[in-house]
Design a protein around this nucleic acid. Structure first.
Lengths: 174, 174
DNA sequence: CTGTTACGCTACGACTTAGTAGCGAAATTC
DNA sequence: GAATTTCGCTACTAAGTCGTAGCGTAACAG
């Protein structure tokens, strides 16, 4: 039923989700759905909870290698039309709905986790400048992927990750 | 009437726009609206055409100064809740609707224009490496703003533009 | 002044959705 | 095996939306 909900969101959009549509797709009676999820937001949050994949958190002992492997694992996520649709829908809805803003915050936090861990380990090894703002650093890493996935997602496969990491490291290392 | 349409989109979201709502807000009869814009997409495209502000295209003779002034003019645009809502809505809708994908492409192209001009002038002055991929360069410039406006827009005002430009120039200049 | 065009208004019919009520069947619990 | 909880199904009201038709009126062009 949550699976049917997710599929409906993907096809029709988050805004066009209806209880009747979920009923049609899942075979579960509308009344039953209402019993579990009294509001549409509750249904949405339950369905999308844990949908977007969490990238790996490599631990090779080298910041450069960690970032490269991390970005390699991130690339297919941002290239995935499913993920892009969900994130775009949630972003749009979060600007007008408080509950969905919470959902979005959770999604973004989940995605920032691996990057923060990588930075933390690198900082302990002394590979990073101390005065780094970590949130900004996360933006620097994921930025090129996010921007490209918005504007020209078909070009995501052309990102030269090693070159990108080297350019970024210039900004972050002593 | 197009103004009322835009306001309705901002308040309710692009998806929740209805002819009846535009009728209520504008005072224009629904039949009249249908006469001008037979489909909802036509109404949306007409209303949003030229809504998002185009940043300035500075020409100071220096790439560094051009970029700084450009980003200063871009910052309030990305910080504007109106622009953020419209762009998020269009992004979301463009993933499922071909006509709105065209609208989005036009919006993005309009925004990339100034950056491309700045780069072109700098290249003629010999300030830029030749092998630069210009679209990538645009992403590099606007990336930090876009990413931050998505994840934590309230921190947009904290971006140190001069520092950002200097970091970027390291990547782009010979 | 007259013909034409554009607009406003009301009123539809068909459709979809939200949300609830009532009842019988199935599954679960003890 | 009996009791309780959960579920499926049908039906229903109220509301909103789409898209159109008919008719009267205002603006405008020649």
């Amino acid at each position: 039923m949550l699976k049917a909900t997710t599929e409906a969101i993907l096809e029709l959009g988050l805004h066009a989700l209806t209880f009747d549509e979920v009923t049609r797709r899942s075979g579960v009676a509308k009344t039953t759905i209402y019993r579990h999820f009294p509001t549409k937001n509750a249904l949405i949050v339950a369905a999308l909870d844990g949908v977007t994949p969490v990238p790996i958190t490599p631990d090779t002992g080298s910041l450069r290698q960690d970032l490269i492997e991390f970005l390699e694992s991130v690339r297919p996520i941002f290239a995935d039309p499913t993920v892009r649709k969900i994130m775009a829908d949630v972003q749009s809805a979060a600007l007008r709905d408080k509950e969905l803003r919470t959902l979005q915050t959770k999604m973004l936090a989940g995605r920032a986790g691996p990057t923060l861990t990588i930075y933390e380990r690198a900082r302990e090894r002394g590979e990073l400048r101390d005065e780094i703002d970590y949130l900004t650093a996360v933006e620097i890493i994921e930025g090129p992927f996010i921007v490209r996935s918005l504007a020209r997602p078909q070009a995501l496969k052309d990102v030269d990750i090693e070159e990108l990491v080297d350019r970024i490291l210039v900004q972050l290392t002593p």
